[in-house]
Structure formats: structure tokens, C-alpha cells
Design a protein around this nucleic acid. Structure first.
Lengths: 264, 264
DNA sequence: GTGAAAATGTTGTATAATCCAAATATTGGG
DNA sequence: CCCAATATTTGGATTATACAACATTTTCAC
């Protein structure tokens, strides 16, 4: 009777080498195949196979000639996000950035569309003060020296590179701003909703603390429903998207007197 | 008489693109030339030329087919380009990570050495709770699911990717931890000091709120004095460095009963 | 406008990395 | 010790990238 050792201990040499690769990637963002093969004294094919498996195990990202550590947050790589998809988000972000008047105070939440907004805001250099719970948003805005960025406290959520929790909510509740610009996982007649655990409360707080509220959302999310609703249509001043909502949702928005801005 | 405008405004398009590249590298560790050229709608040669300059400015690392973020933790600004001495910092970080006991609460401040510490802590997976004002530290720790990361609020300082200010100090003062692990710009007989504006107050608060204090500092900084001193030798439990301090400083440390740990 | 300078694009060639398949070496169980 | 399974190496065809030289476009001061 053969033991299950075969699967329990799938050979030490290979395992050890792959562990070393992962360790290396913790310390440097990128390793080259040629360097590793030289260092371990194995052929490049072997390293390539290691990369292949580690990559399919989701432990690293492949690159031509090497491999890199996984992105800190939940940012899809270039190949994942379709070229047209990011274009839509850029358009939405640009339109949203144009809404901001010099000297205003803002709240911006976490999300791939709001990061685009942040990039345009930073590029335009519109002087303003922004409160955010998102690392990428803060970093994008930080490139402009005319924008003051205030970061919320909270529990760090690595998958989204943002902070959440009661500290975050309390902090938001101590501030008041002219506008908030937030994303959502879905928008239906009932209102906007969010799939990421912990984000709904953040968005609710931002809606509560700002005079004007903009929802940045692409067409894909129309009509859907996320895990938890964080407001109803009446809470939103305007929706910014890449397409006009269909009749059903469109009527509901009109009924709730929500302005609809379509990018391009 | 020609104005100096030529150097003042070296074209916007290129500058913007390069900033986008750097931002992208903050969000993910590696970018490909092909992806960037497609995204910006420029030829691969242009991106290659961007990489070349950014690399010679010490802002990124080149790789075959792309570029990766610098191994050092804090994001270098245009004026500074000291990217080496990584090995020493890694050693110091490893030693510091070994000091942490499972279940402890920590405060970790911003700095290139403390980021190395964070990487080792995350790699070891030592279960603990960390309060930090540094984005890179939070992101590094976030890779481990055994570490709870609490981020401080505050004004975002882009050059260091960290938050500072009264919100940060107040937040720190509402917490108490077992250990703090902090860096410094300099260490002299008079005590540790810091060159970055706004950081001294953070470090002072962390020293105040923790039972045990470790100073992570490489040999280059011995005997120097930074802009503002943030404590005296007696405030420090131990110094972790890559070399024993010289006689003068060494005696002072011994007199103040500061333990000295030397990495390798 | 106009011309010079900078930035970008294009092309061709050298170099490097990938892929594939077959041969060889290594490992662990019996 | 041998066998079978798995790793690893090797070589050559294919593809991607690097680099340099030159052509083109854009920018901006005049």
C-alpha cells in the first residue's frame, strides 16, 4: 500500500526552489528568468515551468522574460480589462472631473471608475480638498500639488486597497463636503447597491455628509442588484455613465429627479 | 532674449504620460511596454524612451519587455535618487521582524527600512495587529491574511506615500501598543532625528504610545543630525542596524541602556 | 507664418525569450 | 536494485523585444 506521500510531499527540490522564487518576489517586485536559472543552476525551461505553475496557482504574475509579484490591490491587469472597457471608465471619469469647481471639498470612494476620476482631477490640477478611503485614489490625487488629500482611518482591506470599518465611518461623519463622487456595483430602480462587504456603509456615510452626490457607474451595471443597497434614487443628485439607462430605470431616475450625464 | 520657458514647461504630453506610468507602477509592480503603448496610443519606441529616462532618473527598474517598480519601499520623488543600500535594509528588516511575537500589537512608521520589515512580517505570517501611517507598509502587510492592519487618518504626503498631521497624531494617541518600529534620518548622541517635515511628530507619538521601541537605522545615519529631534536615547529600547555604532555613539547608547542589535 | 528643436514614428537588424518535442536525468516506491 | 513517474535538459523553430539610424510630426519662440 503506497502512502499518499506523493501528493503530500511533491518533491523537495522543486518545492524549495519555488518557495525561494516567492520569497524573492516579496523583496523585489520583479525577477528575471535568466537570473533565477543562473542562481539555481537550472535551465531556463525549468524556471519557466515554475512560473507557469505558480502563475496558475495565482501566486505571481508572468511577464516577458520574468515574473512579478501580484498587485497589492484588486486591480485587474491590462489584459484582463478590455481596452474598450477602460475607455468607458476614462470617459466617465473625465466627465465627473469636470463637475468639480475650484476650491470645493469632495469625498471620493474606492473603485476602478473613481480612480479614473482621480487621475483626471490630478491632471487638470483643479484646486480642491478630497477626503477618501481609497489608496489608489489618494496616490493618483497626490501627484497634483494643488489638491489636498485627506485619508480616512480604518481597517485595511487588501483586496480593494482601501480602508473600511467603524473608524472610517466615524471619521467621515466628522466631515462635511460639497460633493461626493462614488461608484457602485449595481444600479436598479430601488437604488444603488454594492457587492463588496464593508463598502456599503462607507458610501452611505459619504452620501450623508455631502450636499451633492454623483454616482459613477458604467452601463454594465444598470438594472442589477448588489449585495446591499446603500441608498435610494432620491439620495443621488446625478448619475454619470457611458450610456443612457433603459426605459425602466430611466423613468425611475426621472421620477426621482436624478440628473443623468452621459459621457460622449 | 529667449526666456527659460523651455526648461520650465518641457511639454505636457510627455510629462503626463510618464506620471501615469509611475502611478501605474504604484498600483501594480510591473507594466509591459506593449500594454502601455496600446493604452496611450503611442509607439513602443516612445514608451521605451520613457522607460529609459525614468530609469536613469532612478524612478523605475527596467526589465525585458517592461519595467517594474523600485525594490525600495518608499516612492522616490524627482529630486532624490538614492535607491541602493537595499541589501542592508533587508537585513535590518529581517532582524526586526524576528522581534515580533505572535499576537502582539505594533506601530510601524513610514520609511524604506520599515517597508522591508513589513515584507518580512507578511512573509513570516506572524499574527499581529499593526497601526501604520504608511501606504507601502499597509500594502505589504496586507498580503498576509494573518495580519490585521489599521491605517491612520491624515493629510496625504505624496513624496513619502504616508499620512501626517494632527489627525494622525490624535489617532495614534487613542491607541496603545506593545511595540513600535520606527526609522529615522539620523542618530546622534542627542537622540534620533528626522529630516522629513511632519514625520517627527508622528514618531514622537508612536514612541509615546508603545511599551517597547525599536529604531531601525542603517550605518550611514550614525552620528548625523536631522532637522528635528524626536526623542532622546532613553526613549529607545533598542537600535537595529547593520553595524555597531562607533565609540562615541556606542558609549552614549550604552550609557542610556539602549540595546544594540546588528544584522549579520 | 516660419524655422529650429524636440518629440515621436518607422524601419531594419541583432538579440533575447518563448514554445515544442524528444532525449536524458532524478526520484521514490517496491 | 530496478521500475515507473516525474523533472530536467537540450536543440531548433518561432516570436517578441532591443537598439540604432533615419523620417516625420509637433511644438513653440520669433
Amino acid at each position: 500500500m503506497s502512502k499518499v506521500e506523493l501528493s503530500i510531499r511533491p518533491k523537495l527540490r522543486k518545492r524549495e526552489r519555488r518557495q525561494q522564487i516567492l520569497l524573492e518576489l516579496r523583496l523585489r517586485p520583479h525577477v528575471r528568468i535568466s537570473d533565477l536559472s543562473e542562481r539555481f543552476g537550472v535551465s531556463t525551461e525549468t524556471i519557466r515551468r515554475d512560473f507557469e505553475q505558480l502563475s496558475s496557482d495565482g501566486l505571481l504574475d508572468r511577464a516577458h522574460g520574468g515574473a512579478s509579484a501580484l498587485a497589492a490591490g484588486h486591480y485587474p491587469t491590462f489584459d484582463e480589462r478590455a481596452a474598450d472597457r477602460i475607455e468607458e471608465r476614462e470617459k466617465i471619469g473625465r466627465v465627473a472631473a469636470n463637475l468639480v469647481q475650484p476650491g470645493e471639498t469632495l469625498m471620493i470612494d474606492s473603485g476602478s471608475t473613481t480612480v479614473q476620476l482621480a487621475r483626471f482631477l490630478a491632471f487638470d490640477g483643479t484646486p480642491c480638498t478630497v477626503v477618501t478611503n481609497s489608496f489608489p485614489v489618494a496616490m493618483a490625487l497626490g501627484q497634483s500639488d494643488t489638491i489636498e488629500v485627506i485619508v480616512c482611518p480604518g481597517d485595511y482591506l487588501a483586496s480593494e486597497a482601501a480602508v473600511i470599518g467603524t473608524d472610517t465611518i466615524e471619521f467621515l461623519d466628522r466631515h462635511s463636503v460639497d460633493r461626493c463622487l462614488i461608484g457602485a456595483s449595481a444600479l436598479s430602480k430601488g437604488g444603488p447597491s454594492e457587492a463588496v462587504r464593508g463598502f456599503a456603509a462607507i458610501k452611505r456615510a459619504m452620501l450623508r455628509r455631502s450636499a451633492v452626490s454623483h454616482l459613477l457607474i458604467d452601463r454594465e451595471k444598470f438594472g442589477r442588484r448588489g449585495l446591499s443597497q446603500f441608498g435610494d434614487l432620491g439620495d443621488i443628485t446625478s448619475v454619470i455613465s457611458d450610456r443612457v439607462p433603459d426605459d425602466d430605470l430611466g423613468r425611475a431616475l426621472k421620477g426621482a429627479k436624478v440628473e443623468v450625464l452621459v459621457a460622449q
